[in-house]
Amino acid sequence: MTLDLLLTHYNYWVVIFLMMVGFYILISRGNLIKKIVGLNVFQTSVFMLYISLGKITEGTPPILVDGYGDADVVYSNPLPHVLILTAIVVGIATTSVGLALAVRIKEAYGTLEEDEITGIEAGIEPAGEAGG
């Protein structure tokens, strides 16, 4: 039963694996570019979750052609794919804003390592203000 669950739902295991990998990179890496990559992997796992939700076993592509146009034909749900197109665009926008910020941070601080940036910020922050 357990093995069966693993095999028949392997797409969800892939999604969970990617999600955890992305989230781990995001949390553990100090380099801002690597953080963005981690965020990207994390978001991509959600794209795959949506896309595999739309797939129906034995389902045809949702296109009306001769012989496939009947109401009783089982077809895959196209809506999650459309939704995820939007989410992919959002993901690209997030990545580009993140990378643009990383460029500006590199210009301003001369580094992309989070602990070095924190050190520089602690240096210029007078005592008492570093409450956050």
């Binding site: 801002l32 997030t94 993140g98 910020l101 500006r104 941070i105 301003a108 601080y109 940036i117």
Partner: peptide, 12 residues
């Protein structure tokens, strides 16, 4: 310049 790092943290 801390505006940049705080924007980045907010983005993440």
């Amino acid at each position: 310049r801390r505006a940049l790092t705080s924007a980045f943290r907010y983005l993440v």
